[in-house]
Design a protein around this nucleic acid. Structure first.
Lengths: 159, 159
DNA sequence: GTCGGTGCAAATGCTTTGCATTGAT
DNA sequence: ATCAATGCAAAGCATTTGCACCGAC
């Protein structure tokens, strides 16, 4: 009834998808804190990678269930928090009720275009926002740590 | 044990502070929906006005308690929702746990500069963001409904 | 008298935590 | 052995809701 010890397996798969940096960053961060890169954590990171960008905790749980990786809800939340601390995942709070999270690929910021009528969420890139942010911080003698931009829109003619 | 019926009192005070438009908008919206502008709702709007911009539900409750206006938690939440529907108040979700709300003065969007080290939140105006938003929506044939921009920063030299 | 509004307390639902067990070095 | 991680179930907490009563038109 134990957990299968197949971290290398997962690790390989993730690396084969050119996502090695994520694993590497996460593992280094864990190592630095005296924490461990466990199979559960690997599975969770793997599942996150498979969700292309934006996800909810519940979706992540389901995705793990589907790949028959048994990871408890508590561990998922705990790992998400670790990933946030490592700067790999960012909490994104939309208008609605619960939290979404999004993978942060390195330092490239991702903006969101949210269709309020359909619920669709598109990820877009607006490098000029980082510049705007940096300028504003510079003017005030602050160090920029990040930013968040979300656009809400509907199809033409919707309410 | 009833509620004191002093809506005019509150109304006057708010209007004397040049915030008549808010009351007016709210009242019109309520009227349109066949709802009422009650003393409790007036008190809540009044308290929101007194919080200059950004507030949490709990702060609002406390502020009401301090002015010895007894309004229940449930009513506060219900009224905030009405104010959101009326476009007077906007839900703002920061990194942290719970929701903040902010007064929306007419249609002018307010962006936020958040000091992650001190917790300070500064309100700034960046009209160019609305243009950027509109351009992006136009490119995709969408109607812009709003946007949200938040900058996270620390003082020079902080973590 | 009909509706909506309010307060209270109970319910909700996401997220966190306590605790005993398990796993890795 | 030690120290951290996990799972489960219980606890937390902001927010919502059900319900009985109250007030306005």
């Amino acid at each position: 009834m134990g957990l299968e010890p197949l971290p290398e397996d997962v690790l390989e798969r993730a690396e084969s998808e050119a996502l090695a940096p994520l694993c590497a960053v996460f593992r280094r961060r864990l190592r630095d804190e005296g924490l461990k890169y466990t199979p559960e954590r690997a599975h969770i990171l793997d599942a996150i990678i498979g969700m292309d960008g934006l996800f909810e905790a519940e979706q992540l749980l389901e995705s793990l269930r589907e790949s028959s990786e048994r990871v408890s809800k508590a561990t998922v939340y705990r790992t998400i928090k670790l990933l946030q601390d490592a700067g790999i995942v960012q909490r994104v709070l939309l208008d609605g009720e619960h939290a979404y999270f999004q993978l942060v690929y390195g330092t490239r910021p991702h903006e969101l275009l949210i269709r309020v009528d359909t619920g669709e969420i598109e990820t877009i890139e607006l490098p000029e926002l980082a510049e705007l942010r940096d300028r504003i911080c510079r003017e005030r003698g602050l160090d920029p740590q990040g930013h968040r931009f979300q656009i809400y829109a509907t199809g033409r003619g919707s309410t």
